[in-house]
């Protein structure tokens, strides 16, 4: 790794949590440009906390976090963040296109309105995510899959070099989840992607590197997970989690077998 191209994300010995209770312990992670990393782990295992630390929303208690080789607060406006759709108030009076426009906030200063260039980017990402026909609908009245696409469009409107997704298919109809991953695979041609999920099946079929997170992170790059790590991470038999395909968790033909 030369100085000209530092890792996209570099965490070293990071501990973080809330009210002096550590949710993450000694997390070390290095993501190279162009990678598609899936971090899996049980609910409550610290996945969202990991994202909050990488995005600089939560300060780590110890360790260092660098994004593009810099402190995250200096570069985070070039990170596209896709939160869980469950976090949103569905009665909020806002149209899909207004949500997507938020991706341009970092490009415009305070007190200046979105301009023509912003609108062009917004139009383009609406196109890319197949949301053009839903632009003027109320965000809360979209289906789960459409809301997810709107949030991905918003992250793309940032024109990001890193895309960070929190459970991108939670609350999305299973028949539509494939489409979301196809979209991410397409985006991965130009953007580095980090995704966290509790859904083992989808991770194996779509990502380039896998990590297992439950307070501590097992991550060695690549798709291979050492024997026993999954059981340890989830605290129960993987057999149970993957519905009886314990030894075929990570080979490539897993599409549609997710839990």
């Amino acid at each position: 790794m030369t100085e000209a191209s530092p890792p996209v994300v570099e965490m070293d010995g990071v501990g973080a949590g809330y009210d002096s209770e550590l949710v993450l312990e000694n997390v070390t992670l290095k993501i190279a440009s162009g990678d598609f990393v899936g971090i899996i782990g049980p609910n409550g295992g610290g996945k969202t906390t990991l994202i909050r630390v990488i995005l600089g929303i939560l300060q780590p208690e110890r360790g260092t976090v660098r994004v593009f080789g810099r402190p995250v607060t200096e570069v985070r406006a070039t990170v596209g963040y896709v939160p869980q759709i469950l976090e949103f108030d569905r009665a909020f009076p806002i149209r899909a296109i207004d949500v997507v426009r938020m991706g341009r906030l970092g490009r415009r200063g305070l007190r200046s309105a979105y301009n023509k260039a912003d609108n062009e980017v917004v139009d383009r990402v609406m196109e890319e995510t197949g949301m053009v026909d839903h632009a003027n609908r109320l965000f809360g009245e979209l289906s789960g899959g459409q809301r997810q696409r709107a949030l991905i469009a918003r992250a793309l409107a940032v024109e990001p070099e890193l895309l960070v997704l929190d459970e991108p298919t939670a609350n999305v109809d299973p028949s539509l989840q494939g489409g979301i991953y196809d979209l991410l695979a397409e985006l991965n041609e130009s953007v580095t992607i980090l995704m966290v999920t509790h859904d083992l099946g989808v991770v194996s079929a779509h990502v380039k590197s896998v990590g297992c997170l439950n307070r501590t992170l097992h991550y060695h790059g690549g798709i291979h997970i050492p024997e026993g790590v999954l059981e340890e991470t989830f605290g129960c038999s993987v057999d149970f989690i993957t519905h009886g395909t314990p030894h075929r968790v990570f080979p490539k033909h897993m599409k549609g077998q997710g839990s």
């Binding site: 909050r52 995005l55 600089g56 929303i57 985070r76 406006a77 990170v79 963040y81 939160p83 976090e87 949103f88 909020f92 806002i94 207004d98 949500v99 426009r101 938020m102 991706g103 906030l105 970092g106 415009r108 305070l110 007190r111 309105a113 979105y114 918003r154 940032v158």
Partner: peptide, 23 residues
């Protein structure tokens, strides 16, 4: 009027606004 887009972003998704360096 002046801070409409920031106030909308904070109200809808504070974390996203923060990442976009909104004060």
């Amino acid at each position: 009027v002046l801070y409409y887009k920031e106030l909308l972003a904070i109200s809808f998704d504070e974390n996203f606004a923060r990442i976009q360096n909104v004060p």
